[in-house]
């Protein structure tokens, strides 16, 4: 036996989180309160996602962690190592090999399957928070489906910028009922939220909320008849693998301030390169 509880959390805490996950799945898009525990990592490190992962992992799982698309950031490596040690799970960086994927701010490019679960780290779960700071009031707004202010805020964007400027954490309506914050994923990823084959679970540690999207749930990004939703991305192919359809990060490649666009999903990009796809700058070392 190890000196840890399996997956770090004690059994009673995991049961409490598991009950919250089931209610979240039964009421898609609704934020279930839970009693978040202190984790041996700072709040900014996705303690909500870590607690959800701890409650669902089994020793049979193969676990992947991405941080803005990358498997190799300090944050992603720490969380992966944490569950290797405490739950004895196998880990991987390959999206298609993972049974559970914990993510911060991205949905993998490769479509997920019915055998997979995507766990999101959420900083601010309440999409109405910037309109109304009081929890008692936002609860009421959700209860009464009072989402008019949300539309007003988006429309103000249009009148100010000529388009909806919100490009991350772009709010969605779930099954025509609850407005939900999809966490700070780029709105490019929003269309993947709906009709996904995998289970999607969202955990906010500091704010103590869990919510969920069952597979094949109807998810619609808020928009207007005269300004329909657009899943935008940088208008370039990936410099390393030439992908035209992936979400890109702009990176500085030399001391002279040279820049290139590369896939934010590093596993996707590496797989394409390994399969022989080459971008314009594919021969250069972009590290």
């Amino acid at each position: 036996m190890t000196q840890y509880n399996f997956a770090y959390l004690d059994e009673q805490t995991k049961r409490m989180i598991r009950r919250a996950i089931l209610k979240g799945l039964a009421i898609p898009g609704y934020q279930v309160p839970f009693a978040s525990r202190e984790m041996p990592m700072p709040y900014g490190w996705g303690t909500g996602g870590v607690q959800v992962s701890a409650a669902i992992l089994t020793p049979e799982d193969r676990f992947k962690v991405i941080d803005q698309g990358a498997d190799d950031t300090t944050n992603a490596v720490s969380i992966r190592t944490f569950f290797e040690r405490t739950a004895g799970v196998a880990t991987t960086t390959a999206t298609s090999d993972a049974s559970v994927i914990q993510t911060r701010h991205r949905i993998p490019e490769e479509p997920l399957t019915e055998k997979q679960i995507l766990v999101y780290q959420v900083p601010i779960p309440e999409p109405l928070r910037f309109l109304e700071p009081r929890e008692s009031e936002t609860r009421k707004m959700h209860a009464l489906e009072e989402y008019g202010l949300m539309h007003v805020k988006l429309y103000e964007d249009i009148s100010r910028h000529g388009h909806i400027a919100t490009s991350y954490a772009y709010p969605v309506t779930v099954e025509g009922r609850f407005v939900m914050d999809p966490s700070p994923i780029p709105k490019f990823d929003n269309p993947k939220l709906g009709d996904m084959a995998a289970i999607q679970l969202f955990g906010a540690g500091r704010e103590q909320r869990i919510y969920a999207l069952p597979p094949y749930t109807k998810v619609v990004s808020l928009d207007f008849d005269d300004h329909p939703f657009e899943a935008s991305k940088a208008d370039h192919p990936c410099g390393l693998c030439g992908a035209e359809e992936s979400y890109l990060d702009e990176v500085i490649i030399d001391d002279a301030g040279g820049r290139m666009f590369v896939c934010s999903d590093t596993d996707y990009c590496e797989r394409r390169q390994a399969a022989g796809h080459v971008g314009k700058l594919g021969g250069k070392d972009a590290a």
Binding site: F6, K14, I21, L22, L25, T58, P59
Partner: peptide, 11 residues
């Protein structure tokens, strides 16, 4: 371990 496995089935 068994409650983790059972929970996955229920989930």
């Amino acid at each position: 371990i068994q409650s983790a496995q059972a929970f996955r089935g229920v989930m």
